[in-house]
Amino acid sequence: MTQTLEERMIELEPPLRLARESDASQLADLVNYAGEGLPYYIWTGLAEDGQDPWKIGRARQAEKAREGQIVVVDFGSGAVASLTGYKIGAEPVEIGEDFPALFRPLQELENQALESWYVNVLACYPEHRGKGYGSRLLDLADEIARAEGLARMSVIVTGDNIGARRLYERKGYKEAAQAPCLKEDWETDTERWVLLVKSLS
């Protein structure tokens, strides 16, 4: 079972704090910003007739918050940025014939980043960008990884997200691999996924 940040003895100082269930609406927004609309596409596929996809997104984020796995930036009026990640183990995930095509290239890239701490979501509301929140959260991600005994970081970005890539490269990440984006019915200009990795040693 994954440890919470508190169990790892990671201390958060304001404006950083653990996310709460009450942040679910903002967290769903932030996840969708980070995923460039892919999360909403996934939630839409999960929605039953007449169900609001955002309700599914909020429920999923509330569950992650309950598990103590999300850190947010909050100056007193709610989350304006967030970080979610997890440890990639030593064994690659098997990609069988029934593995969803949309996620296949993403999993193939993750399988090239074994034994790393994977930045799954790093997001900030557009009006709060350029203030250093992403950099601060990435520093925290490094701290979490070291606490878990990991020696490297990883993240997957879209090939056309120049701003995100510049941020990660400033923090020491380098391109390790690419994979084509299999869009299905997801409306996006994204053509390729890019795996970036960073050594902590």
Rank of each mutant, 00 (worst) to 15 (best):
E108F: 07
S116A: 13
S135V: 12
E143P: 03
I156S: 02
V31A: 15
I70R: 06
G96E: 11
Y125A: 13
P14S: 07
W54Q: 14
L138P: 01
A176Y: 05
T190H: 13
E191C: 11
E91P: 06
I56H: 00
I70K: 08
A62P: 03
V80C: 04
G50C: 11
E48I: 00
V119W: 05
L106Q: 02
R166K: 14
T4I: 02
E127A: 12
Y133H: 10
L195G: 06
E97C: 02
I42C: 04
G76C: 15
D185H: 14
S77P: 04
Q107E: 12
A176V: 10
L106N: 00
G35A: 06
K183Y: 12
D160K: 10
A47M: 04
L196V: 05
L109W: 02
D139L: 13
I10N: 08
Y33K: 14
K131C: 02
D52T: 04
G172I: 06
D29W: 08
V121C: 04
M9L: 15
E110I: 12
R152A: 09
T158P: 05
L182I: 13
I56A: 04
Q107L: 10
M153W: 08
R8C: 07
L27F: 02
F103V: 00
A28Q: 09
A62T: 05
A141S: 14
V72F: 00
V71F: 10
G149C: 01
V155C: 07
G68S: 11
S201G: 15
L46R: 04
V197K: 12
P39Q: 01
E169V: 02
P15K: 11
T2C: 13
I88M: 09
L83F: 07
K174L: 13
R152Q: 15
A28S: 14
